[in-house]
Amino acid sequence: MSSTQQYLLDTYRSRQHGEPLPPAPGAHDLRLVRELRVRRQFRAVLAGHPARGRMREALARLLHGRRRQAGC
């Protein structure tokens, strides 16, 4: 059963019982991503690492290293 089918079944059941409707699938995805990002930044600060730009720095190092190897 897909998540959409499960949602429709849950919606039907909640209406039959007069309960509030469940949230739609994916309704809180953006909020979850933001909370995960904040948590990762918080843990980085506690560990003494920069909170922002770590991914970009790692990608720059990776790309810069590959460029250097290709030129040799």
Rank of each mutant, 00 (worst) to 15 (best):
S2H: 09
S2Y: 03
S2N: 15
S3R: 13
S3Y: 09
T4N: 10
T4E: 14
Q6A: 14
Q6P: 00
Y7T: 02
Y7D: 03
Y7L: 03
L8A: 06
L8I: 02
L8R: 15
L9W: 11
D10W: 04
D10L: 11
T11A: 13
T11E: 13
Y12S: 12
Y12M: 13
Y12V: 00
R13V: 11
R13W: 04
R13L: 14
R13H: 07
S14M: 08
S14Q: 11
R15H: 08
R15C: 03
R15L: 14
R15A: 00
Q16D: 07
Q16M: 07
H17E: 11
H17A: 15
H17K: 15
G18K: 07
G18M: 05
E19S: 12
P20L: 04
P20Y: 05
L21H: 01
L21F: 03
L21Y: 02
L21N: 04
L21P: 02
P22W: 03
P22A: 04
P22Q: 03
P23T: 02
P23I: 02
A24V: 07
A24N: 01
A24F: 05
P25S: 05
P25I: 05
G26V: 01
G26E: 01
A27Q: 14
A27G: 02
A27C: 04
H28N: 11
H28T: 13
D29C: 02
D29F: 02
L30Y: 08
R31K: 14
R31V: 05
L32D: 09
L32R: 14
L32V: 05
L32A: 14
R34T: 09
E35I: 07
L36Q: 12
L36M: 11
L36A: 12
V38S: 06
V38R: 06
V38M: 07
R39Y: 06
R39S: 12
R40P: 01
R40F: 00
R40D: 09
F42T: 15
F42N: 11
F42I: 10
F42Q: 14
R43D: 06
R43M: 10
A44T: 00
A44R: 15
V45F: 11
V45E: 12
L46V: 10
L46E: 13
A47H: 10
A47L: 11
A47R: 13
G48L: 05
G48M: 03
H49I: 03
H49M: 09
P50I: 01
A51P: 04
A51W: 01
A51T: 03
R54Q: 15
R54S: 08
R54Y: 04
M55F: 10
R56V: 09
R56K: 15
R56P: 00
R56A: 14
E57M: 09
A58L: 12
A58C: 10
L59M: 13
R61M: 08
L62R: 13
L62V: 03
L63P: 00
L63A: 10
H64N: 13
H64E: 15
G65F: 02
G65H: 07
G65C: 07
R66N: 04
R67Q: 08
R67E: 09
R67F: 04
R67T: 05
R68S: 12
Q69H: 07
A70P: 00
A70C: 07
A70K: 12
A70M: 07
G71Q: 14
C72P: 04
C72E: 13
